[in-house]
Design a protein around this nucleic acid. Sequence first.
DNA 1: ATAACTATGTACCATTTGGTACACAGCCTT
DNA 2: AAGGCTGTGTACCAAATGGTACATAGTTAT
Lengths: 190, 190
Amino acid sequence: MPRIVAERADVLPALGECFREHGFEGASLALIGAATGLGKGSLYHFFPGGKAEMATAVLAEIDGWFEREVFAPLRESESPAAGIARMFEATEAYFRSGRRVCLVGCFALGEVRDRFAEAVRSYFQRWVDALDLALGRAGASPDEARRHAVDVVGGIQGAIVLARALDDPEIFSGILARIRQGLMEMKTAS
Amino acid sequence: MPRIVAERADVLPALGECFREHGFEGASLALIGAATGLGKGSLYHFFPGGKAEMATAVLAEIDGWFEREVFAPLRESESPAAGIARMFEATEAYFRSGRRVCLVGCFALGEVRDRFAEAVRSYFQRWVDALDLALGRAGASPDEARRHAVDVVGGIQGAIVLARALDDPEIFSGILARIRQGLMEMKTAS
DNA sequence: ATAACTATGTACCATTTGGTACACAGCCTT
DNA sequence: AAGGCTGTGTACCAAATGGTACATAGTTAT
């Protein structure tokens, strides 16, 4: 019996892709097993709570990544413009021009929103808040900053939906570029 | 044995809500039966193709509604501004301020995009094209019209995602109002 | 060496899944 | 009133579902 020595954290990426591709309900244990290379034994060893715990862990990992790569820079960059630029670059890379779906957004739309409501809410709330803060520091008025933060985060999610629907990654990149442009114009306008 | 005299078209709304609430995979025949009040016998009588045919029928019904209430007015209204105004009103009403999800958008993001790819693509393509046309007729330059059309349709989808995620209908209404405002400023600017 | 702990595969479980078969009831035509 | 058509409920099916139990293999500590 081979010893593969997996850690819980090692399987999270594969697990995440599996949930992204098939949704929570669609990702059966068979698919999850195939995606991760783990049998049920190992799966239930790492995630005694079953599928629900797997999804929670994946959401937490995603949350951690965005916290580190996007939210924190937005809040803490010396120049808010640099934080914002970083957000766009990280976002474009993470979602692979709309070829990759936002799992948190999926969960928000879908079937299972209520089961993971708090994780979903917190993720988006912190994104909006961090961007709000950065825009404020960049010189926007409080409600200008708030409104734009909401519009931008929403706009990114919409870009993913539309790019997937039309099956055209350029849609995603185009929308993001124009959102970014819009923010720059706002900051120089005031 | 009571005769309820249902028609296929009568169950489509309930069927749609069921798919919206649970997703395609999540909507089991048991849930569908409960939502429609129909037993499997009737269900398979109306939709011999099973769940897939049910989903196809629902997508077609939604498509028809938008074609009638949104796309056609956009294309054919005497005043393009009136068509655009109608789009916003119909959209706001249909999605119930983001409390109701866009099934086509869900399918685009989710698990089952490929199975219904053509229906999904066509729906969004025709929406974008119709808005593009209206904006052009309102005086926008060809690529100004195209870009804004894409941004607006994407923006609406994103507004649904964000409103659901933050569980706050006002997010939806706020984003839509600002998108609408943005279009009006564009038309008066040129 | 031996004991304990961590992984892992296999076999199994009850339940639910989507789907089929079919008998039968009400309606329409003739 | 006889026969066909259209709905409808019930019983049923094989397959797949999420989940459990457990024996065992590898690793680490004693």
